[in-house]
């Protein structure tokens, strides 16, 4: 809540870079690393010198149940810690895309894994489907890296966090020994070609 203290300026560009209060919802199923995604995103925003609150919620099963992480990123201290209307929804499962799309603002952004979410829900704002899990497999050989690939793309497309901070946050948060492979995954996400998603935007 006192985040802005030591922030050196780190530039951010993207669809949501100009919002000074951003609510992000990350949804998926257990085992996909959604909570870790939330922690990495929140850590990155913290490195950007912004105030952050991260809360999570999951079903009773460690694997297979639903899993969700909400991250609020703001310029000023955050009082109410729960997500009200999401500016950004990142969905790694069909259920989370379907279920959480209602929480998106009209001018929000929906990003989903097009390999998994076969029937993207109708949404009036920016809707971007990218094959994160495919990229993860191609780039690292590990489908488990899907979450980090997605984070790279999210940072590039939305600018909710800076590129420098997300790189730092990934290195800090992932288990020792997996840094290299995760940074590779992140870079794959970060290298998303604007042409790949601009066409989808309505």
């Amino acid at each position: 809540m006192l985040g802005s203290v030591a922030a050196s300026f780190r530039p951010r560009f993207g669809l949501l870079a100009d919002r000074d209060f951003v609510e992000v919802r990350l949804g998926g199923s257990g085992g996909q690393g959604v909570v870790l995604m939330g922690i990495i995103l929140a850590t990155a925003a913290n490195h950007d010198g912004r105030c952050v609150v991260e809360t999570e919620s999951y079903g009773p099963e460690a694997r297979g149940g639903y899993s969700r992480s909400d991250v609020i990123i703001a310029e000023a201290p955050i009082d109410y810690p729960k997500l009200d209307n999401a500016d950004l929804l990142v969905a790694l499962s069909q259920d989370s895309a379907q279920g959480y799309v209602k929480s998106l603002r009209r001018n929000g952004v929906l990003i989903y894994d097009s390999e998994i979410v076969k029937n993207p829900p109708a949404f009036a704002g920016a809707t971007i489907g990218l094959p994160f899990s495919l990229w993860a497999k191609e780039e690292t050989g590990r489908i488990q890296a899907t979450n980090v690939v997605a984070l790279g793309a999210v940072a590039r497309i939305t600018g909710v966090v800076s590129i420098q901070s997300i790189r730092e946050a990934v290195s800090e948060a992932v288990p020792a020994g997996t840094t290299e492979v995760n940074l590779k995954a992140l870079d794959r996400g970060l290298s998303v070609d604007p042409a790949e998603w601009e066409t989808d935007q309505r």
Binding site: M1, L2, T55, I78, P81
Partner: peptide, 14 residues
């Protein structure tokens, strides 16, 4: 549960 398990930016020095 909320306060205990949420993550938040915080500065011990301050």
């Amino acid at each position: 549960q909320l306060v205990g398990q949420m993550r938040e930016s915080f500065s011990p020095e301050l």
